[in-house]
Amino acid sequence: MRSAVSVRRAAPVVLIVVLGLLLLAPALVLLVYGIRDWGLIPPATLRPLGTTSLGSSAFALLITAAGGLPLAWYLSNLPRRLRFLAEGLLAVPLLLPPLVVGLTLAFLLGPESLTHLAWTNTFWGLVVAEVYEAAPYFVFVAWAGFGGVPLLYREVARSLGWRPWRVFSRVTLPLASPNLAVGAAMAWSRAIGAFGAPIVVSYHPQGLPVGLWVVLEEFGLPQALPLALLLVIVALPLPIGALIWSRHAAR
């Protein structure tokens, strides 16, 4: 009897410790070896990688939000039959392997394609590749956010004499904003960590993920680990901030 109770008490502790070790192991490796070998990063690669990654991801997030927000709002008002279709379409870039997305994008954006854009191996080509990997996450989460705003609040707002834009900006948008923040956090993480599509579309200019792979190939693990730490340091603040804010706003 007594031992049964102590097992029941100990079980969650053991579970937390084991899970914690499993989950934290990569972070610990990254911290310990990344900091130890920080000096091994080829200095010339550091700045261009960082700025290219931050710059392209920022643009990708901006484009995703600017296009995804109205799209998500529009989708949340679709009749049920059409919703299914929209879900399927949005899922395409999610379900296709990123490398395949990259290949098709390289074809579409390349100099020989119908578009004659010649965006492969340019900054904007990289941005487009990142948008393809990031946007569906944002749109799905924002869509759920808009859909979760009870119709009743919007109706009451209209009955107060408010025009549609006012209803949207005062009621719908603030009530959906925790979801929008989460969606933006996910989109940012996908964009800055995007590898599959960017490596095909834009080998140069390089963001951190592709650069990391190149360093790994050319130099080895000790040089790559600190660069991985840099990627994490660059990628994390925005989503963490967004998640904290969304928790706060939802309360």
Binding site: Y153, V156, L160, V171
Partner: peptide, 18 residues
């Protein structure tokens, strides 16, 4: 709805939560 000279109070609680 927005231009009718009415005020509507629904049955379910409807104060804006935020």
């Amino acid at each position: 709805v927005e231009t009718r000279p009415f005020a509507w109070m629904p049955q379910a609680p409807s104060l804006f939560p935020h």
